[in-house]
Amino acid sequence: MKLYLQNFLKYKHLLRELVLRDIKVKYRRSILGIFWSLLNPLMMMIVMTIVFSNLFKIQIENFMVYFLTGQILFSFFSEATTIAMGSIVTNANLIKKVYIPKYIFPISKVLSSFVNLLFSLIAVFMIMLITKASFSATIFLIPVAFLYLLIFTVGVGLMLSVLTVFFRDMNHIYGIVILAWMYLTPIIYPIEIIPIKYLLFIKLNPMYYFIAFFREIILHGNIPSMELNLICILISLISLVLGLYAFYKNQNKFMLYI
């Protein structure tokens, strides 16, 4: 265990370089550069506000912020896991030729997406200012909310990257899964419209809790309950442990498949 930690520390420079590389390459060619991370959720929000804000019988207080808070978290999760899942296969060339701890690839991809999430956060603040939403001191809990989600996402990313090594068509399947998952997460609709009998579906959805946590501190200015905190911690740790375990068990076989 100590040895693994040492190894990880040795390669933290590489992790940083890989994340920097992703950001550089992603934004080098687009004129709007890093502002895409900001503009994208804003434009989505405008569309969604026009289409949905009057659709539901229950009025959502400050629909724009409600939507954005859910949207940026879910698109982070969706983007990060989708890129992470292919990361071992895409870096096959490197993995075959240099010794590098392989988990560095999915993790670096998740972290690159995480940087985008931080930019998207600016969009949330902008809209909060424009709509004159109240900022409460609980926004200082944002790092906690993001940390829970980050750990959960790393775990899922690790699991998916392992699966993709063995089954290359995973990405097609996952594209459908993530779409369904998005609709099953209360991002554009309020949870109150879900009939009681389907509520269990929502309650089994990990993303629901992370988004609820985030909305609690941004929209309602409440410190999330102990229960919600525990649920988030539990989910993210389970995901991380499963991800690391799946990765650790299979990583020596990767070379034979990539």
């Binding site: 040795k10 390669y11 420079h13 590489l14 940083r16 370089e17 890989l18 590389r21 550089k24 490197l94 240099v98 590098i100």
Partner: peptide
């Protein structure tokens, strides 16, 4: 940029 990236791959900070 590649000098730093490749250096990191080889384990140099």
């Amino acid at each position: 940029e590649n000098i730093f990236l490749n250096g990191a791959i080889l384990g140099h900070d």
